[in-house]
Design a protein around this nucleic acid. Sequence first.
DNA 1: TTTATGGTTCGACTATGATCGAACTATGAA
DNA 2: TTCATAGTTCGATCATAGTCGAACCATAAA
Lengths: 225, 225
Amino acid sequence: MKDGPDISKIATLIGDPARSNMLLVLMDGRALTASELASAAGITKQTASFHLARLLDGALLAREIQGRHHYFRLDNADVGHAIEALLGIAQNRTGKRTRTGPKEPALRKARICYDHLAGELGVLVYDRMCAQRWLEGAGNETFVTPKGWVALKRIGITKPDPTKSRRPQCKTCLDWSARRHHLSGVMGQHLLKQFFELGWAQRLPKTRIIKFSNKGEASFRNWLN
Amino acid sequence: MKDGPDISKIATLIGDPARSNMLLVLMDGRALTASELASAAGITKQTASFHLARLLDGALLAREIQGRHHYFRLDNADVGHAIEALLGIAQNRTGKRTRTGPKEPALRKARICYDHLAGELGVLVYDRMCAQRWLEGAGNETFVTPKGWVALKRIGITKPDPTKSRRPQCKTCLDWSARRHHLSGVMGQHLLKQFFELGWAQRLPKTRIIKFSNKGEASFRNWLN
DNA sequence: TTTATGGTTCGACTATGATCGAACTATGAA
DNA sequence: TTCATAGTTCGATCATAGTCGAACCATAAA
């Protein structure tokens, strides 16, 4: 009677079509920007912002601000669990079964995350670079070591003039599908661009999938040892 | 985009405070009447009827009409599962833990279901009466056998004048907590009344719990062999 | 039959909340 | 600095949906 568990408030949050569409898109674990979510839900930026604020307030989503991009993801596993339970009722009602898209594994392996590499291979880059002391520090205070610059030069990335920009070159970004961090920021952007220019990988149109060729992935893994 | 899984419709159904209150009350598995649900949710009969129709349409509730009483219960386990998942988010948000009431086991053992005995002991009555051929038939076509009337007479229930009423004396009622049928209808009502008059059991005030005394339960089980 | 009660339907009122145009803020690039 | 873009805030509009009074239907008891 009084307040109790606010089940109705949470259900109301999920109940709006625009919001449920956003949540469903996020069900695969990705973190998407507000604009991406807006187009996924078929609404304007303003409306999306309105809804995202409510979802944040209700602790259904978490926001990670990286530059001018605001990434939204499901706040915790409980949220995903509840949505799956609701999906269970819905599919029981229609008799249909959910079929997971065939592109899902490819997305988890390598995908573009705004401008850098995410997924298993993205996490691999970060792990290997840290393990070999090419990177030091953590979070937004991550720097490339001299040893790292040597390695980067091998694939054509040169150390920029330190007088031009004092901004940190590296940032880390939590990778939902792997639950670990990968490299983003300017360095992440440069790395991905270089993978493309080296012909190691290309982006599949209309999706976020990054497809490494067999030869490209071999060179990629070789570079990281 | 088009229709997809109607997760938002289902969430909207749960999202209304009146409806979520009803659903929460039904979470223990009982089947309650529209009026009981109305008072539980703090709304009028008309409003409750409006909401219950929507919950029926959405297949969240099932209705079983017995006489002028309409009993509502959760339609299937998936519904309960989804509500529990939503409760999980809600309690995580406030940091509180749900504590299952201590009255829960007592409710499952024996409770009043409108006017007759439900719960484990209610199911036991029906099972034993069927097993000993005191009852024949099923559903709303259940009748007391001659052998049954002998047994009933032992606890003071006599066969009514068959000319007075041609209505079936017995009905069965699905017991949610046990997932099996128990005896309702006029016979169920008479039986429970007799249990009270014999001093075997009494009703705990303010709850639906029926408390059998140790001696009463022994006599009860003895009567049923 | 009459009377009482449980439940639904109808109609009108009301409030909440979703939506978008427009203006504003913040970050990044040149 | 200026320009472009991502995101939020404000304000006004509009529709949906919850609410209850009143009337109606169905069942049961007397």
